[in-house]
Computed example of a mutant assay.
Amino acid sequence: MVLGAYTGNIIEQAEHPNRWYWGLIQVYSLFFSVISLIQTIVYFNECEKKSSSIWRLVVAVPFYTSAILYRALALSLLLIFYQQYTIIPILIILILNILSFKILGLDLPRSLVYGVSSLLAPAGFNRCRNPKFQPLGYVSDEVRYSERSPEQVEILRERSKRYLALHLIFGAFVLGVSLALLWIMLNFSQIYSPLIHLTILPRVFINDYIFPAILAGFISSTAFTALYCCTILCCAQEEYIYPLTIH
């Protein structure tokens, strides 16, 4: 209680209003949340059960960071204006993610978990199992041994590349259409008027900075996805693929 009273006195004597400090707290909270998310997904995809290296992290960290930032910024903007209707593009992305993992050969529980986890960045795509009549890979006999041939390893890597491509395309299509509609409504309707007193983002700032920032983030994510596929997926060891069990 003493600490709370002391903190309250500091805020009352400060130059900025209380609203400013609450906003600063939220900014710090969002910053550390993004850092935590990046750390978690990099560890899950690149470090757990694998031999980590500096060159892998140099490519992987910007790859996941760019995807997280542009998707999080896009979804945040949609939540501000579409509010509860933002669940529609989110559900579409989740369904496409889950279907992609299911076609990739994963069981339904794993497909659900990885599909939901891939909302902001791809997760679990390098833990796929054996290819068997799957559109995302090649038609091949079922792998029945824990030791793979070089051809089988290459097939699994190609499937990971194809999933990353679909993850990028699906996100670009769903978020792109949603943001295009939002831009039209923002500039040619009254959707912004009820939020004038509730948001600190002027319409001009959104048009001149937020939308270009999302576009720049998507272009950056596309470039790092291509770099990731050309480096880590091509040069990583066999342990990069989720190990098979002997049938």
Rank of each mutant, 00 (worst) to 15 (best):
33 S>Q: 09
210 I>A: 08
86 T>K: 01
64 Y>E: 06
125 F>C: 03
136 L>M: 04
149 S>P: 05
19 R>E: 14
232 I>P: 00
119 L>A: 05
75 L>D: 01
243 P>I: 08
136 L>E: 01
153 V>I: 15
17 P>L: 04
64 Y>N: 06
63 F>T: 11
134 Q>S: 14
130 N>S: 15
209 Y>M: 13
61 V>F: 03
221 S>M: 13
4 G>Q: 12
167 H>L: 11
78 L>V: 05
71 R>V: 07
203 R>F: 02
74 A>N: 06
88 I>T: 01
228 Y>G: 04
32 F>R: 05
208 D>C: 10
80 I>V: 13
209 Y>G: 00
37 L>N: 05
108 L>G: 00
109 P>G: 12
217 G>W: 07
145 Y>M: 10
76 S>K: 08
89 P>I: 11
75 L>R: 01
154 E>V: 10
126 N>C: 14
77 L>F: 10
199 T>W: 07
239 E>K: 09
112 L>Y: 05
113 V>K: 06
153 V>C: 03
80 I>P: 00
181 L>R: 03
13 Q>R: 13
133 F>I: 10
202 P>E: 11
217 G>S: 07
132 K>P: 00
177 V>S: 13
132 K>W: 11
149 S>L: 14
191 I>R: 03
131 P>G: 03
34 V>R: 01
3 L>W: 08
3 L>E: 13
13 Q>P: 00
40 T>F: 14
13 Q>W: 09
15 E>I: 12
170 F>L: 04
98 I>F: 02
226 A>M: 10
